[in-house]
Amino acid sequence: MFDAVWTNANLATMAGDGLGIIEDGAVASIGQDIAWVGPRKNLPGPATATYDCAGDWILPGLIDCHTHLVFAGDRAEEFERRLTGVTYEQIAREGGGILSTVRATRAATEETLAAAALPRLNALLAEGVTTIEIKSGYGLDLATETAMLRAARRLGEARTVTVRTSLLAAHAVPPGFTQADYIAHVIDTILPGAAPYADAVDAFCDRIGFTPAETDAVFDAARALGLPVKLHADQLCDLGGAALAARHGALSADHLEHANPAGLAAMAAAGTVAVLLPGAGYFIRETHHPDIAAMRESGVRMALASDINPGSCPARSLLLMLNLGCTLYRLTVAEALRGVTCHAAAALGLPDRGMLAPGLRCDLALFRVNRPAELCYWIGGNPCAGRVVGGMSA
């Protein structure tokens, strides 16, 4: 006897290398887990509750594996400046950019941060997201970084969603520190103090961020604390971030607009996932796209994420990223949809979700579309008909 069955549905299971489509299928659960998946005609037994999906498509619950969801304020004024020709890098070097959000975030309480983030989270959940990663990085001191991580975890208590937190203290250098002194502060003070609230450690390795050597030091300290690592890599130039992430066995390296083929091959060999963030490239008008051909050749897994943040991607839609990934980067429909399901799960180190298969967590997203390609095709609108999280309708 199953606890629940979702039937009269078409399934995109993500099995194999494609979408793993099963037409006229069913999904059955026991407790929080999937117990059976297959054609409806082969359903082996009854269930306590049966849900007729009326021909909807069921995908694994969507996973947004790279967000900066918790912050205070906005950067609309900087957006106006960029429209006049001022660059993102120029604003950052003038003390704006990330440091502008740092000032606003330090002035906010933990409760205020969580309340401000809730509408952003709601928008993503409404599109079928069941797991989300949330970074810190707008505090740059122990008290605020910790408050951001706690606020992120509050969101997981306020809504039916799995929240994974990443400590991004190595995001920028705050006033009053040299770069070297701040990295020492991150390693000696912020990492050990904030570690209980973090599921992973991230860093920004780029020409307006931190050097490879500084990033190595942060990652060594993180791994000594038992925390996996992730990396903002090669967004604005090629500093060898892809290879650095691979050397540390990182869960993911994200952005990668300027990553070289050798670094991507090293990621593939290490099992590090390439997280593509087309919304950021679009918003800052980046014309140098990631080398998708080299990623395909190397076999590195490609994920997609919203990168929602106040400066370079104020986008509250993961479905939009499916379209941007296909139109800007020329991903296939299967690559895009696997990028927000099974490959996004791998980018967070969560092997228990991202596919429809027995034994995995019963996180489902239901969509009222005629074929999965519509999720990548439409710009705007939301065809999500419901979510299931841990076997329960959400």
Rank of each mutant, 00 (worst) to 15 (best):
V5G: 02
W6P: 01
T7G: 07
L11H: 09
A12L: 10
M14P: 00
G20F: 03
I22L: 10
A28E: 06
V37P: 00
G38Y: 14
G45Y: 09
G45T: 12
A49H: 14
T50R: 15
C53D: 08
C53F: 10
C53V: 10
L59H: 06
I63K: 04
H68A: 10
V70E: 11
A72C: 07
A76D: 15
R81T: 09
R82N: 10
L83A: 15
E94F: 14
G95A: 14
G97K: 05
I98H: 07
T101L: 10
A107Q: 02
A107H: 01
T109M: 11
T112S: 15
L113N: 08
A114I: 14
A117Y: 07
L118F: 07
P119Q: 06
P119C: 07
A123T: 13
V129E: 07
E133N: 14
I134N: 05
S136W: 04
Y138N: 02
G139T: 02
D141F: 01
L142C: 02
T144L: 02
L149I: 08
L149F: 13
A151E: 12
A152T: 01
R153C: 03
A158P: 05
T160C: 10
R164M: 13
T165L: 13
S166T: 15
A170P: 01
V173E: 10
P174D: 05
P174M: 06
T178M: 03
Q179V: 14
A184P: 05
L191H: 03
P192A: 05
G193L: 02
A194K: 06
P196S: 01
D199L: 03
A200M: 15
D206H: 09
P212G: 07
E214K: 07
D216H: 14
G226L: 14
G226I: 12
A233Q: 11
D238L: 09
L239V: 08
G240L: 12
A242V: 07
A242K: 05
G249A: 06
A250K: 03
A253D: 08
D254G: 06
A265Y: 00
A268P: 03
A269P: 00
T272R: 07
V273M: 01
V273L: 03
V273H: 01
V273Q: 01
A274H: 08
V275T: 15
V275P: 05
P278S: 01
P278D: 03
Y282V: 01
E286F: 04
H289Y: 13
H289W: 10
P290A: 03
I292E: 06
I292N: 05
M295V: 08
M295L: 09
G299K: 07
V300H: 04
V300W: 04
A303R: 08
L304G: 10
S306R: 03
L328G: 00
Y329E: 10
L331H: 07
E335P: 01
A336M: 13
R338E: 13
R338S: 15
G339F: 13
T341R: 00
A346L: 07
L350S: 02
L350K: 07
R353Y: 02
G354D: 01
P358W: 00
L366G: 02
F367T: 04
N370E: 15
P372N: 00
A373F: 08
A373R: 06
E374P: 09
Y377F: 15
Y377C: 11
G381D: 11
N382Y: 03
C384A: 12
C384S: 06
V389R: 11
G390C: 12
G390V: 11
G390S: 11
A394W: 13
